[in-house]
Amino acid sequence: MLAYANPQRFMELSHRVLPWLCGATAVLFAVGLYLSVTVPPDYQQGETVRIMFVHVPAAWVAMMAYGFMALASLIGLVNRHPLADVAAKEAAPLGALFTAMALITGSLWGRPMWGTYWVWDGRLTSFLLLFFLYLGYIALWNAIENEVRAARAAAVLALIGAVNLPIIEFSVQWWTTLHQGESIFRSGGPLISAVFLWPLFIMAVAYTLLFFTLLIVRIRTEILERRTRSAALGSSS
C-alpha cells in the first residue's frame, strides 16, 4: 500500500484508474436511481422509504470518510507521509458535505415520520456532532499557515475525534433514551424489507465510489498545486 504512496506513483496510477472509477460510479448511480424511484412503496413507511436510498448511503459515507481520515492521519503522523496528510485533508470537506446531506435528508424523512423536521434522536444528534468535528478539523487546517505543522496538528485532532466518537455516540444514545421514551421513536429504526436492499446496496456502493473518485481528483489537484507553488518558489529565488 505504502509503495504506491509516492506522489509521482500516485499520479501515474490514479491517472490510469480514474476513467474506470468515473464510469463505474456513473453506471451505478444510473441503476441505483432507477431502482430507487421504481421499487414499490413500503407498506409501513409508504413512499417515504425512497428517502432512505439517498439518506443511508450519505450517512454511511459520512462515517466512512471520518474513519478514512483518521487512518490517513495516523499514517501521516507515524510514517511522516505527505500523501497520507493530503488524503486526510482532502477527505474532510467531502465528509462534511456527506454529513450535511445525511442530516438534511434525515430531517426530510423525519417530517412525515415523526411530525417534525428535527428531533434530538440519537442518530441525528451524533451526526450533528460529527458535522462539527469535520468543521473543526477543516478550520484547524486552514488556520495554521505552515503546511507541515497544519498537517500534524490536524492529524492529532482527527485522532482525538476518532477516540471520542464512540464515547459521543454512546453518551448521545444514553441521553436520548433518558429524555424520550422508546415508545415514540424506535432507536434501531424500522426494519427494511428485502426488496429495498438492492437499491439501497447499489446506491451505497455508488456513493462510496463517488467519494473515492472525488477524493482522488482532489488529491491530484493538491499535488499539482504544490508542484506549481514549489516551482514558483524555485524560479523566484
Partner: peptide, 27 residues
Amino acid sequence: YAAFIWPAYGISAIGIIGAVALTMLAY
C-alpha cells in the same frame, strides 16, 4: 409525501453535482 421525497433527492443532487463541479473546476 412528494413534498419531502423530491426535496431530499434534490438536495442530494445539488450536493453531489456541486461537489463534482467544484472538484473538476479546481482540478
